[in-house]
Nucleic acid binder design. Structure first.
Lengths: 260, 260
DNA sequence: TGTTACAACATGTCATAACAAGTATCTTAT
DNA sequence: ATAAGATACTTGTTATGACATGTTGTAACA
């Protein structure tokens, strides 16, 4: 299709106007009739555009009154388990990573099983310490099947994420994976690099990422120093929601929190 | 309004048919033309009904092909940070709680600030150990302003949740609050009740709940033994989604995991 | 000054109609 | 028998139109 449908173009236009601040939160949009005249289209076309924006929760409509920009077109329902460097940049901290170890290691039952490679296949292991404002705040250990791990061989792992290299440079389409949140005691190796006592509690987040076809690409354990990093969650409770909250509640916000 | 719009009635009817199993996941719904004939309404009315079901993610539509029932109208985007006893029941484990401590305690700067009560106001503190399959798996410490805490005085805290008492018995409308996930070392008191070594890592989840009007009702720290409890997260990655995932990804699943 | 009725304006529902674009099936040509 | 083209079916986009329902402002009346 060479051109977008009109209602989409109009929705795009209105969305841009809102994002530019031409219409502020709480402002009323022009009436349907005025928009019809302005864009020289029929009312159904305007209504589809407005419906689309309403579905995005960017506006709300009220019969007899009009359409209004919502107060908080907030990013909701997103889980910020993103790049370390991205998290830091967003929070206004300088970050860096230091490669501690890159080597081929022997098979490990748990890891090989998790990565779904043969039980005796060797793995590539990548260890890095994550530094923010010159403080070591997290340490991660990543295991990849050898086939993927070799792709990282000559890459700058101090400045690039594994995800970025595999997907960006090698076009390996990585889909989001599963995470596990738990707590662990820092062993001697981790404690050394985090600058904490052996046995100190760390907030451990394990991650296994796969290709969009389902093939496991890497398995990573990240050990966050809880003195510097925790996670905040906020949930909705809508009185509209019928029945009890026994199934759980919708997510409003999942963000990392830093204490530097 | 005495009767529903027709498109809503039709959507309701189709939704019921799907829920009853008249149309199974993957099944194609009748064409728009056939639905127009069947319900004796115009096409726009049918299209609005179908659009509504599509917005609910109950069906998907494909141009030239038709509308189909989705494979998984799964419960998604829900965060299962629910009752301890509910989590256990759902996972098929016997659970119980044991009240360890219920007393009025002196003001604490951090807690009083969090609960937004005057800095010198005393608090009610409720400590309980959470037991699953006869194993102590978590320990929680709850602080309430005295006004709310006194309501718990004669309640059976071994078998009822604080939430349940305040909302169920006293009709205090509690909205979901904020949570913080971190890791901590079990002090002597917690270690004793969890049956672990002093200093052992625990997965700490702090929670502050408020009324729907925004008044803080209780603040709770829960210490989960990571040997028995962790949390799994799965995220979506849609190829439809444009731009990078720098803002985070949508939540698919957030569930506790038990190792008993 | 306060209340009520009415008109103007605005969105919601529904109908009829036509053309565009996508998919599957049938027919014709090689 | 297979491939290409035509046709039938299906959903997507857009226009015109009418009536229902909700909101606000103004004028008239008590």
């Amino acid at each position: 299709m060479s051109t977008k449908p009109r209602y989409e173009q109009i929705a795009d236009h209105l969305r841009t106007e809102i994002e530019k601040g031409e219409f502020l939160p709480g402002d009323k949009l022009p009436s349907e009739k005025r928009l019809c005249d302005y864009f020289d289209v029929s009312r159904i076309t305007i209504r589809q555009a407005l419906k689309s924006l309403e579905t995005e929760d960017l506006i709300f409509k009220k019969q007899g009154l009009g359409a209004f920009v919502r107060e908080e077109p907030a990013k909701q329902n997103l889980v910020q388990l993103t790049d370390f460097s991205e998290d830091m940049r967003r929070a206004g901290h300088r970050s860096s990573s230091k490669l501690i170890r890159f080597k081929k290691v022997e098979a490990d039952t748990e890891i090989n099983t998790t990565l779904e490679v043969p039980p005796s296949s060797p793995l590539i292991r990548v260890d890095r310490v994550r530094i923010a404002d010159d403080i070591p705040v997290a340490f991660d250990v990543t295991w990849l099947p050898a086939s993927y791990g070799h792709l990282l061989l000559d890459e700058d792992l101090n400045n690039r994420t594994i995800y970025e290299i595999l997907e960006g440079t090698y076009s390996i389409p990585i889909s989001a994976g599963r995470y596990k949140i738990t707590a662990a005691a820092a062993d001697e190796y981790v404690a050394k690099h985090l600058g904490v006592e052996v046995g100190s509690p760390v907030l451990e987040i394990d991650r296994c990422s796969r290709t969009t076809a389902g093939k496991k690409v890497y398995f990573q354990k990240r050990y966050n120093n809880p003195k510097y990093i925790s996670y905040d969650i906020e949930l909705f409770r809508n009185d509209n929601v019928e029945g009890s909250s026994k199934d759980g509640l919708p997510l409003k916000e999942f963000t990392p929190r830093f204490y530097f």
